[in-house]
Write a protein that binds this DNA or RNA. Structure first.
Lengths: 333, 333
DNA sequence: GTGAAAGCGCTAACAT
DNA sequence: ATGTTAGCGCTTTCAC
């Protein structure tokens, strides 16, 4: 920058102001400095800027989601939102290891990140590290927030309701729900919304009630056995807690000669493309809009960094029903 | 740090040396300074350190792998290798967008990263950005390297050979190969290794030859039709170019009443846990050791940053056959 | 053995 | 409208 200033015949201070569009000065001077800077291929040293501006334009992203199934879209949303603002993100994979997590947090603090985003593979679990009292803003995205902090999560009840209402609108009347382990909070939330939606339509669930199991294809497969090999009238629709479960259900149905969606409509959850799109037929499913969630989280963190007051609390972001072919015709309108 | 120095009754210079285990000084002094630093909860300002040391202890990771299927393990390996050395990694998702890529590269350069790692979802494609002449070390990991640069890729021939030899060792004699589109270099590499391995054992492929198609379950399904619904004797083993293809083949086989592995042995490629483990039976597959690849890439970048001379060229890292249940008993020994 | 002083490259009051 | 000066927080050479 000294060189630029010299070449433009001004002082370093003036050069700095010119390049940052700050302070008063002749437009001619400003233009001239910017010209020479470009001509010389000048690239400001971000470290020096950060040091004196007391702002590093970096944030740390902590996550424990090894497969990246949930974190990846969140990440990409965060990154999108931040890169436009000149902010870069440090990726910290902490693998559920408290020591590793602490190492990463310490590194972030030394590198003087402007803020931290905590993400994870479960919305109802904390990362194995204490992020309170760090002296910098922290945002929780798809992860259990600390009390009095700011968090973004998906609206699982809303998503489940949309799914069930979609089935009802299509004329399905015996709708079952096959979902994951009851140790997950979302299992309860989605099941509650499922029951509410049925109740509101004056319908009852199948005799077996909500089938609670695992987040796996195998469980979907097994559950389909309970639903369709028993006595009594089988469901005409199954709302599943994950795409993997739905895939298991669909495969089991095909093995039993039941047609999807003609005989049975199936809806999944997650919109994990690779599973949902490979299922035959492709799955209608609930998309949690994770990328948008990441974007919101990123933008909010920036506001916090700018010392704008933000109401603490957790924000539930809406899910979206993605209609493919496992339910038959989309609703009119 | 001024505070630490004052509290320990030494100058800032001495404090700095004490904390960095540098220079000569009384052990007592050094210890005392370190004590007080800890007592005061002193955390060095990385920005200032970087500024004067001319080393930021950060690296940039460029990738265009949206699903993260390949990049995630690579990332996690890189991150593992680097965090131990106090180096943090900036994640740059460039989405195959040249402008976005350039934006990220510029950001990295301004932030004075010590080096850049370019990764991707295809080993035979360049990222849409020129990384030569940046003035900092660049390493290619699971991505097409520039001429005269350093790259790490998986040894696809080796992996394919292991797979086919495994099948031969298990007594299979009519081994088919179902793989992805011929626009991928790995398709040719794996097919070549497949033919070589067959030839070396004095075997021939099936009448249909190598079945080239897509990286999808649907293609695996379809290809199984060609292999098993035709006239002539069907294969007793299928080596697939991806786990997704293998999954399609296995499902198709089950629908035809052929037992895996009893009637037909199947091997996949990628060890994409989520599909390999969900297949019935779980897939034996070729693991590309992507995490180790990432680790190597990270470590090598550090050597480059330390100005250690490294031979340019691409290193092929070995794959590993992961035996599950789709081939029957593992080979003796 | 320890410390004074001169940077690292940039920003921001304050003066002119 | 521009320049001078004093940092930002740390490292490092070189006297003492």
């Amino acid at each position: 920058m000294r060189d630029v200033a010299a070449a433009a015949g001004v002082s370093v201070a003036t050069a700095s102001k010119a390049l940052n569009d700050q302070g008063r000065m002749a437009e001619e001077t400003r233009a001239r400095v910017q010209q020479t800077a470009k001509a010389l291929g000048f690239r400001p040293n971000g470290l020096a800027q950060s040091l004196s501006r007391r702002r590093s334009f970096t944030v740390g992203l902590l996550t424990n989601d090894t497969y990246g199934r949930f974190t990846l879209p969140v990440m990409s949303g965060i990154s999108d939102a931040l890169v436009d603002n000149g902010v870069s993100v440090f990726l910290c994979n902490i693998e559920d290891d408290p020591a590793l997590a602490q190492t990463h947090v310490d590194a972030m603090l030394e590198k003087r990140v402007d803020g931290i985003i905590a993400s994870g593979k479960r919305i109802d679990r904390r990362l194995p590290v204490d992020l309170s009292g760090l002296g910098i803003p922290v945002i929780y995205a798809f992860s259990e927030p600390d009390p009095d902090s700011i968090g973004f999560v998906s609206d699982d009840e809303g998503g489940a309701r949309q799914a069930v209402e979609h089935l009802i609108r299509l004329g399905r009347r015996r709708i079952a729900h096959v979902t994951g382990p009851s140790s997950f909070r979302v299992v309860h939330q989605r099941a509650a919304a499922y029951r509410d939606a049925l109740g509101a339509a004056g319908l009852a669930g199948p005799d077996q009630g909500v089938l609670v199991g695992h987040w796996s294809e195998a469980w979907g497969h097994e559950a389909a056995g309970y639903l369709f090999d028993g006595i009594g009238s089988p469901p005409d629709a199954v709302f599943c807690g994950s795409d993997q479960i739905a895939r298991g259900v669909v495969d089991a149905l095909r093995e039993r000669g039941r047609r999807v969606p003609d005989d049975v409509a199936v809806i999944g959850f997650d919109n994990w493309e690779i599973v949902a799109a490979a299922t035959r037929p492709p799955l209608t499913t609930v998309d949690m809009n994770l990328k948008a969630l990441g974007r919101e989280a990123g933008l909010t963190l920036l506001q916090l960094v700018d010392r704008q007051p933000i109401e603490p609390g957790v924000r539930k972001l809406p899910c979206r029903l993605l209609v493919r072919q496992s339910c038959g015709a989309p609703p009119a309108g």
